[in-house]
Write a protein that binds this DNA or RNA. Structure first.
Length: 735
DNA sequence: ACGTTCACTTAGTAGTTTCCCC
DNA sequence: GGGGAAACTACTAAGTGAACGT
């Protein structure tokens, strides 16, 4: 591996990055310079890094067919380094990343609209008051949105029902309405036929043979091809969400007042495209025209529209692996690293201000403490048509419980209505301040920090460091925590063990940031299964050790410790394990038999009656034999468990037994690791912090320093997103 | 000075694909 | 080689924070 590349560290020249304004004075020639310079070094670097690419290029030349094959392969992204040839290595010229102008030329093909509504078959109808009713297509579509969700939690939520029904009635009023009934009551609506129809369609789609699925996918990709890429300053870059969001029912999170509302179909007329001045305007869909064409090169979006529910603007932007995203990620992490230089001063300052005679300063200091220590978000004001969630500045009286002498219990819903519940010890002055902020006449519903909002806090932060805002603290503390945790990991053990250690560090960060996920449905069962599996492996291991002693009693004296554990398996315990194992074994057998029978029945029409009969008989016979054999084994195990004397096969030797035991030990270790990981990860989401908070150069450093392939730490998408980090950080990189 | 608008990051989940075990 | 779980991706909602408009 070429050290010169590995060692090269990115230092962004000046991160002040003035936003907006000064459109004209931005450094314009940046991109061109990058392009010419990087091409000259590209080939060398690629060769130095991995021989594979140079080889590949040669094969591509061979024939036209070969070329097509390669192109296809690339477009399917089966090869990690597929598009390397065209990749714009912006990080090789980090000085050019600043400035206001994002691009000189921008060319793209617009956006892709969802397919038009496909009407229900005549036989599938909404039932109102027990009778099938006809509906105008626009209204029928809306019933379909609800019908498809009938078995989900949303459909049981009264707010969801209410919002859906209101909007459904609105659509009825806008159209010719229902000719068969006056639809006024949600409770009289029966969507079950519609649900069944969509459910069946889902099943059918799932059951499609894999060849058909593949073909459909290929066709889809063909139609998507033109939207997938855009051209920026002559470079091909990937577009992220070129699919316009399809209509449906708004699925707001938590107790969202508008959940269930109708999200309307977006028309080309709703869409504003952003293009280079000289770029051709993509053709709008037949019979339509674009809402607006803009040429704003200070922004990074390609298209936008206003969504009808919250009035928010939705953007079509570049994909995660694009230069735009990479550049802003690098800037974000460099900004967080800059905080290292100032954080001591800031901490001293807010510790002092905790005792300030000015109420506003006390609030600023206390809030900063919470943001710094517990990684709270800023917490901006929210409207009352949004879910009631809070962050630091918007914390209210009821979100905090004080337990003298200095314990605070936080209990509130944060972003995405994820609960933040923590019982913590705080600085005694912080405790006193909170008590003051909660003092009468404050009551539930009142703001804890009545003088604060994020902009006040951020102004305070900016006095220490330009560009410092509340969110920088989260990034800083997350990456700092990761660095500290990684430093604790000894450079020993297998790759698997190192990955587990890495994940444990990652988990610390996720916990700090309160990144959660719903516990998978099958979690509890899965844990139990793993526990049983481990128990059974230990059982096997102890049996083998006992057989060893049966062969040669004197061995015990030679290594008491090795044989110590054989006492742990009592007769009762062993019998219990054997009977559980037996039950499972027989169940497995039965299941397999049932499956085979089903399969045979399926193939019935392709064979003669006799053939079928014979095959079925064979199957039964085979099953019978297997069952008998299993029962015999069970019988043997049961009696062995009773006597704790085990059958010795002629092939057994001490060496062979030892080998088997070693293998089992290995498996037990692996499974235990797996179990530990599973238990500790059940409610924690590692992905969010890996994607947004942990400086990827830390992960790359770990990979290189600990010899863990980066593939074990970053998924393919993350490797692409963080290509800049993979190529610029070495084994000694520090946050 | 303050609410609104705009542009961007951050977030969990639903859906799809891959992997792993028998 | 098939089925279920784990891994990954796509999707889009929900934040932050600066600039804008009044």
């Amino acid at each position: 591996m070429s050290q010169s590349i590995v060692k090269k560290e990115i230092v962004v020249g000046d991160l002040k990055a003035p936003k907006r304004k000064l459109k004209t004075e931005a450094k314009e020639p940046s991109t061109k310079k990058v392009k010419t310079e990087s091409t000259s070094t590209k080939v060398q670097k690629a060769n130095a890094k991995k021989g594979t690419k140079a080889v590949k290029k040669e094969t591509v030349k061979v024939t036209k067919k070969e070329v097509e094959k390669e192109v296809k392969k690339d477009s399917q992204n089966t090869d990690d380094n597929a598009e390397d040839e065209d990749t714009f290595k912006w990080w090789e010229n980090p000085d050019d990343l600043n400035g206001e102008i994002k691009w000189e030329t921008l060319e793209h093909n617009g956006v892709m609209f969802p397919p038009p509504y496909e009407p229900l078959p005549k036989s599938v109808k909404l039932y109102y008051d027990g009778k099938p009713v006809s509906l105008p297509l626009e209204a029928e579509e809306v019933t379909g949105f609800f019908g498809a969700l009938l078995e989900s939690e949303h459909a049981k939520n009264p707010v969801f029902q209410k919002n859906f029904f209101n909007d459904f009635r609105k659509v009825l009023a806008e159209t010719s309405g229902c000719p068969d009934a006056d639809i006024t009551s949600f409770d009289k609506c029966d969507f079950s036929k519609i649900y069944q129809y969509y459910d069946k369609k889902r099943e059918e789609k799932k059951a499609l043979p894999s060849a058909a699925k593949k073909k459909a996918k290929e066709e889809r990709e063909k139609t998507e091809e033109m939207y997938k890429y855009c051209i920026i300053d002559g470079r091909k870059e990937q577009v992220g969400n070129f699919h316009i969001e399809p209509p449906g029912l708004f699925r707001g999170r938590g107790a969202h007042p508008k959940t269930g509302a109708l999200k309307r179909r977006v028309q080309p007329e709703d869409i504003t495209l952003n293009l280079g001045k000289e770029s051709p305007t993509p053709t709008a869909p037949e019979g339509h025209k674009w809402g607006e064409i803009r040429h704003d090169n200070t922004v990074g979006w390609l298209a936008m529209w206003k969504e009808n529910i919250m009035g928010n603007i939705k953007y079509v932007r570049l994909s995660q692996n694009s230069s735009f995203k990479g550049i802003s990620d690098l800037k974000k992490f460099e900004k967080a690293r800059e905080l290292k230089q100032h954080v001591d001063k800031i901490r001293t300052d807010y510790t002092k201000k905790l005792k300030s005679s000015m109420m506003i300063d006390r609030q600023i200091a206390t809030a900063t403490y919470l943001i710094d220590v517990f990684a709270l978000r800023a917490g901006g004001e929210k409207r009352d048509d949004e879910a009631d969630t809070v962050g630091c500045c918007s914390l209210r009286f009821e979100h905090i419980f004080l337990k003298p002498p200095n314990t605070v219990i936080f209990d509130f819903l944060g972003k995405d209505s994820i609960r933040f519940y923590q019982e913590v010890q705080v600085d005694s002055q912080v405790f006193k301040n909170m008590k003051i902020f909660k003092k009468e006449p404050k009551k539930p519903g009142d703001d804890l920090f009545d003088r604060l909002d994020p902009s006040i806090l951020n102004k305070y932060f900016q006095g220490f460091m330009t560009g410092l805002t509340a969110k920088v603290f989260r990034t800083y503390n997350a990456s700092k925590t990761m660095q500290d945790q990684l430093d604790l990991i000894p450079n020993v053990g297998t790759v698997k063990e190192k990955v587990v250690a890495f994940n444990a560090a990652n988990r610390e960060v996720a916990i700090l940031c309160n990144h959660q996920r719903t516990i998978p449905k099958a979690h509890q069962a899965g844990v139990q299964k793993l526990n049983e599996k481990i128990e059974e492996m230990i059982w096997q291991k102890i049996k083998l050790k006992r057989i060893m002693l049966q062969l040669d009693k004197t061995m015990k004296k030679k290594d008491l410790e090795y044989f110590e554990e054989i006492e742990d398996l009592t007769k009762e315990k062993e019998s219990e394990i054997v009977s559980r194992w037996s039950k499972n074994e027989l169940e497995k057998l039965q299941k397999r038999f049932d499956r085979e029978k089903e399969k045979l029945k399926y193939q019935k029409k392709e064979m003669s009656a006799d053939e079928y009969k014979q095959k079925m008989a064979e199957l039964k016979e085979e099953n019978k034999k297997k069952a008998e054999k299993a029962k015999e084994t069970i019988k043997q195990f049961k009696s062995e468990a009773k006597s704790q004397k085990y059958e010795e096969k002629s092939s057994y030797t001490a060496e062979k037994l030892k080998l088997q035991i070693d293998k089992l030990e290995e498996r037990i270790k692996n499974t235990s690791l797996q179990l530990k990981d599973k238990e500790e990860n059940s409610a924690v989401s590692l992905d969010t912090s890996k994607m947004n908070y942990i400086d990827p150069r830390l992960t790359v450093m770990f990979s290189k320093k600990y010899d863990v392939p980066i593939e074990k730490l970053f998924t393919k998408t993350l490797r692409e997103k963080f290509a800049w980090a993979i190529e610029s950080a070495g084994a000694d990189w520090k946050f």
